[in-house]
Design a protein around this nucleic acid. Structure first.
Lengths: 335, 335
DNA sequence: CTGTCAAATGAAAGCGCTTTCAAAATATCT
DNA sequence: AGATATTTTGAAAGCGCTTTCATTTGACAG
């Protein structure tokens, strides 16, 4: 790998001049510019971004922290961020927090130590305090899926309580009164918030909220199935299943079918997130739209604006969940 | 952010000594060690990995190039790699190639310029020659999903032709003779290979391969649906649909239902990849298992062994696709 | 107490680049 | 032409760390 020094040698100019033509940071005569460009060409020169980063304290990299690298939700989020940033030659460095405090902290430290210009964080375990403290450091951050008042201007979030409420109310409005809730892991903020929304809607309908009707899953398909097993085994009756996310919803639908209780026909199932396969399930999944890709783009725009002073517009930070009505929730038929 | 210099000041030792206790690269007296540790603690010192990387020419980072950041397939692959590496305190830097030559090259250059210790590449447009050339450079690489003889020891792949063949033969064995193929983008190697497998199986069954029975999709759900529209509109009759991947398969099943042609009952549908939701579709999807997560782990082990000289075992590089029989392919019922 | 050898340490160069500051080259004006 | 303002340039310091090499320290034998 040739270095800037070799380029300067070959071009017969100083290091500084080469650096200047690379960055366009100052005027360089056309003549020198050409000599430098030719030399670069000839040597197949590639700047070493680590060195650039060390010297300039800027990396053109944005760090992303997600819980997992797989999963439709995070995939959309990462893509939203990456594609937006890519348009401005910014790169992303992604790390996984695995939903535990240690990994999340380490992930953040890693990203910071790699000189990321900014961090987009989807943390599930880090405390508000930690994040507030972090935001005071010299690496700007954007917090996803969480509304922290002290740093509201750095948050891009969706009202999960409202989402849970809308989902539940929709099922209630279709005449279902015996509901169960397949929730996400309770240690996750969004999961808890959705449960709160569920509770609100249920109470509003004059139904007593019953802890036993909430099953704590892990946002994966299997736990949706496990939840159904649990409710059936426990003899808890239900005609409506409100799920914490789409994956658990399809797991639940699959298992319901095994019990000969047909989704939609015998029992209403509603999801959350509206991931891409929700439109292709059978029955197609009624769910709550979570515009995560769009929100990822917004997060990216936020750093573009704040960190790189690039004029982007239409930045919105708080999003509203909306009902995506498909076929998995139908009016309760009297028996 | 405190630097190593400040630590050395506070500890009353030299830079070199601090560096040594950080890396355990040489003997340091217990006394100095303690002084250094205390100083680090007191200052909340975090080594700057960019500087480390520049000075040591090692980053403890492995670069990954995937086509997209979303999608179940890439998600599994990234997770397989990341989790394995994480156990040895190695980090991943991920970049997307968006299935076009320019972005893929730029992605590779970016990863190299970031001093990645190795690259795991899932390229769709880069030529074999480019990869062979790349492998001669000073950054070791692992190539996923592609068998290149010249660098076989750096490839982790699956026999896609065989997969396409097995899938097709399974449908044929169930009595279906009117088949259509919903393929992935033809510019992608794996898509083409799966088509070849399809063709082999079809020919073997004494059926003429008909170009018109192959629809070129894009591996996304919508194109599975579009393919069904296409075949129906064109008046092409079929009772079996062999798909290039699971996503197109569920898109196809959803659309078939709209035409009142029930998947499994009226028409057999088989997928490819065996992504996690395949077990939760209705009917559950018969498909070809592509152990991508496992293969990601293998790729990780390969770099662990080759680059970091860490003794890992059970490294396999060539994988066999296997049939996952579920409910979407049933014996053809005579009309 | 001196001499020897191994262990521990520090000074300094270097990784590849940016950036400041002053000097050199060129342009502009009387 | 000379004086002055402007544009281009290069030398050199520095970013935070690693690593080599020489020096110092300490342990131990004689």
């Amino acid at each position: 790998m040739p270095t800037i020094y070799e380029v300067s040698e070959l071009a017969g100019v100083s290091l500084a001049t080469v650096s200047r033509v690379m960055n366009g940071s100052a005027k360089v005569s056309e003549k020198s510019k050409k000599k430098v460009r030719d030399a670069m060409e000839e040597l197949g020169y590639r700047p070493n971004s680590v060195a650039i980063s060390l010297a300039s304290k800027r990396s053109n990299c944005i760090g992303i922290l997600v819980a997992e690298l797989d999963g439709a939700f995070f995939g959309s989020m990462m893509t939203g961020i990456e594609k937006t940033l890519r348009q401005y030659q910014k790169h992303v460095v992604i790390t996984a927090g695995h939903s535990n405090d240690a990994d999340e902290r380490e992930g953040v430290e890693f990203l910071k130590s790699r000189n990321c210009d900014a961090l987009v964080i989807h943390a599930e375990q880090l405390s508000d305090e930690y994040l507030i403290e972090l935001s005071k450091g010299d690496t700007p951050i954007v917090v996803m899926n969480r509304q922290i008042d002290a740093i509201a201007e750095k948050c891009v979030s969706l009202d999960n309580v409202k989402g849970g409420y809308i989902a539940t109310r929709h099922v209630l409005e279709k005449g279902h009164r015996q509901l169960v809730n397949i929730a996400g892991p309770k240690f996750k903020n969004d999961a808890m918030e959705r449960i709160v929304g569920f509770q609100q809607a249920v109470n509003e309908a004059g139904i007593d909220f019953d802890e036993n009707r909430v099953f704590e899953g892990d946002y994966l398909q299997e736990s949706g199935a496990a939840a159904i097993d649990h409710f059936v085994m426990s003899g808890i009756e239900f005609t409506g299943v409100v799920c914490g996310n789409d994956q658990m919803a399809i797991g639940a639908m699959a298992r319901l079918r095994e019990y000969k209780r047909l989704p939609s026909k015998d029992v209403a199932v509603i999801g959350f997130d509206d991931v891409s396969f929700a439109a292709c399930t059978y029955p197609t999944l009624t769910t709550i739209n979570y515009p995560i890709k769009l929100m990822g783009q917004q997060a990216a725009k936020l750093v573009l604006k704040d960190v790189y002073k690039i004029g982007v517009k239409d930045i919105r930070q708080i999003y509203e969940p909306t009902l995506m009505e498909r076929n998995s929730v139908k009016r309760l038929r009297s028996k």
